[in-house]
């Protein structure tokens, strides 16, 4: 075979040079939609990270109305440890609870002067294994504890967990719907711009077919064209997203999400970056394939 790939590339580049506006339109479409998708991914990615950190603190506290005999207490702790998803059970005695409280008051600790150290109830602090640190895990544990009947009041950060999980779910759903819609629209637009370039070159395509070009030979330059446009769009959106991230997101969104100090907003991890460019490539290639499917029937 002769130097066929450079030939195809030359044809693709020439096509793009001959209809620069169509080319720019396709690249811009890919860029804009990938940028929006990437922002969404950044947000979801970071919110997930925060959730993961917050949920480390998820635990259930069981208050003990009366402190049972040490042997009974030990037995109870052992039983609770056997419940599915339980990582650790810590016994907090009345005195320990009092000490913690005093520690938290800091310089105002003298307020507790003369207060009975037995005034706070003893409790069991039950933490969950990482996989169970979610609403379902907490609810299952609470149900199991309630079923025992020998524990008093149960406290758990259930409410915010429910709300937060709902929020995260909504965010993911929105991302999925919006992203899906965007990508579909982009595919459609890219496909149509390539169809326009096909239309511009329809004489050429007809003549190619007449002099015996195979369908693959006719199509390949256009697929390359689509791939290049998608790639360009992917790279442009990447640099765009990174720029906006550096300028606004890293600090701006950071102060919004992490009120009490903490880490900054993270950029997309490398695998996602590759994925984004891959998505651009996918859009370009399948956009042109879609255009060619309807056009080249010779």
């Amino acid at each position: 075979m002769f130097d066929i790939l450079p030939y195809f590339f030359r044809r693709a580049l020439r096509n793009m040079a001959q209809s620069p506006f169509l080319c720019i339109a396709a690249v811009a479409t890919v860029t804009v939609s990938l940028t929006i998708v990437a922002f969404f991914v950044i947000i979801v990615f970071n919110v997930e990270k925060i959730t993961a950190r917050w949920s480390q603190e998820v635990q259930v506290v069981a208050y003990l109305d009366q402190v049972p005999a040490p042997a009974v207490l030990d037995q109870r702790v052992r039983d609770i440890r056997k419940i599915e998803g339980v990582a650790e059970v810590e016994v907090v005695s009345r005195e320990q609870a009092f000490e913690r409280f005093r520690g938290r008051l800091g310089q105002h600790a003298e307020l507790l002067e003369g207060v009975d150290p037995q005034i706070l109830p003893a409790s069991l602090e039950i933490s969950l294994k990482p996989d169970y640190r979610n609403r379902q895990g907490v609810e299952n544990l609470v149900a199991a504890l309630k079923a025992r009947g020998d524990l008093g009041d149960l406290r758990y950060g259930h409410d915010w967990l429910v709300r937060f999980e709902a929020f995260l779910g909504l965010l993911r759903l929105m991302g999925l719907v919006l992203g899906g819609f965007l990508l579909f629209a982009t595919l459609f637009i890219v496909s149509n711009t390539i169809r326009l370039t096909l239309f511009v070159r329809r004489d050429e395509l007809e003549i190619m077919a007449l002099v015996g070009a195979t369908p693959l030979f006719i199509k390949t330059p256009f697929i390359i064209e689509g791939a290049l446009q998608g790639l360009c769009g992917g790279l442009l959106s990447l640099s765009g997203v990174y720029l906006v991230y550096r300028l606004f997101l890293r600090e701006g969104l950071g102060t919004l999400l992490f009120t009490a100090g903490g880490s900054e907003v993270l950029f997309l991890p490398p695998a996602y970056l590759v994925g984004l460019i891959g998505l651009g490539l996918f859009l370009g290639v399948f956009g042109s394939l879609g255009a060619l499917r309807k056009f080249v029937r010779i």
């Binding site: 050429e204 077919a209 007449l210 015996g212």
Partner: peptide, 22 residues
């Protein structure tokens, strides 16, 4: 569509409107 091009390569076709790429 795969074999037909191979046959066309052995044909020469001329049209009234030339069909050249401008």
């Amino acid at each position: 569509p795969r074999q037909l091009p191979l046959v066309r390569r052995r044909l020469g076709i001329v049209f009234q409107d030339f069909k050249l790429i401008s």
